[in-house]
Simulated assay, not measured.
Amino acid sequence: MYDEKCLARIGSNIRFLRMACQVSQQDMAERIGISQTHLSNLEHNHSSVNLKLLLRIANVLECPLEVFLDTNAALDWGKEQAEKAAPEQQDPAEAYTLEEVRQLLQLLRLSKQ
């Protein structure tokens, strides 16, 4: 079930999923019709995201809305996207950048709170 804590994770989930899809912040902002600064504020939970904007983001990333609310669903979906994007010969440990690993760890810490 969802509670208010999931709302605090939406921004970090947006960032994680955007990075898993290898979409730059600038490109995402242009595609959803906002400034890069506003998207950065959303991803860092300095601004609240409305449902209309969340729908646009979901459409760009081609993901279900639930991944923004549930960190475990975001991790699973992001992992699937990273596996699709990574060449099959590539070592799975090399499929993630250092920044992506940091994001994963941050999301895992948030989900334990």
Rank of each mutant, 00 (worst) to 15 (best):
Y2I: 13
Y2D: 13
L7T: 12
G11N: 07
G11M: 03
G11I: 06
S12D: 13
N13A: 03
R18L: 08
M19V: 08
A20W: 01
C21K: 09
V23S: 10
S24H: 08
S24T: 15
Q26Y: 10
Q26D: 15
M28N: 08
A29C: 13
E30W: 00
E30R: 05
E30S: 07
I32R: 10
G33E: 14
T37M: 01
H38N: 04
N41L: 07
L42S: 09
H44C: 05
H44L: 06
H46E: 11
A58R: 06
V60I: 14
E62G: 02
P64L: 00
P64M: 00
E66Y: 11
V67E: 06
F68T: 05
L69N: 10
L69I: 13
L69D: 11
D70E: 14
N72M: 10
A74L: 08
L75H: 08
D76H: 14
E80I: 03
E80G: 09
Q81P: 00
Q81I: 00
K84C: 04
A85K: 15
A86Q: 09
A86G: 02
Q90I: 14
D91K: 02
T97V: 10
E99Q: 00
R102C: 13
Q103M: 11
L104D: 05
K112E: 15
Q113R: 03
